[in-house]
């Protein structure tokens, strides 16, 4: 019996594509919009609260608001609530900064069993790492482009 060649089957792959259930996109978008929007409203409330009660303004206010939201994101992750919101909201709870907090906090919890150094600390950024790498790279690239556009227009 001779060695067989790869039995890739286009016809079958098309059948799979046809039968595989699809995500209900209008519903997902709607859920994401509602939950994502709601998180933003909470953020806005925090912002006003910090401004009127603690008298924080400008960049400091933006930083403080983010910190409070990150804390809430981490707390809800630790309490095992955030993943349930995530199952329902999808992108709606991933995109806001609370989603970023969740993506750092959840692997830290998960890999704690392998120790504080090689587990928790090393694995903390398995999910958020790519976002940080490409987020920073993109911001640097944008900055460089912006710089040259400014030079040209001057």
């Amino acid at each position: 019996m001779k060695a067989k060649t790869k039995d890739y089957n286009e016809e079958y792959l098309n059948l799979v594509k046809r039968l595989a259930p699809r995500t209900n996109e209008p519903r997902s978008l709607f859920n994401a919009f509602i939950v994502g929007g709601f998180i933003c409203i909470i953020g806005q409330f925090i912002r006003y609260f910090l401004m009127y009660v603690f008298g924080i303004y400008g960049d400091e206010l933006a930083g403080a608001t983010s910190m409070v939201l990150i804390f809430i994101g981490c707390l809800l992750t630790g309490l095992g609530v955030y993943d349930k919101i995530g199952h329902y909201a999808g992108g709606g709870s991933i995109v806001p900064i609370t989603g970023f907090a969740n993506s750092v906090c959840s692997p830290a919890m998960e890999f704690k069993s392998e120790g504080y150094v090689y587990g928790l600390a090393a694995k903390m950024f398995v999910v958020a790492g790519p976002i940080i790498v490409y987020g920073i790279s993109a911001s640097v690239a944008t900055g460089v482009v912006y710089y040259f556009i400014n030079l040209l227009s001057a």
Partner: peptide, 13 residues
């Protein structure tokens, strides 16, 4: 896949 507490959605397939 992902950590248990990560708020990701599971695809329907």
């Amino acid at each position: 896949r992902y950590p248990l507490e990560l708020g990701s959605t599971r695809p329907p397939q």
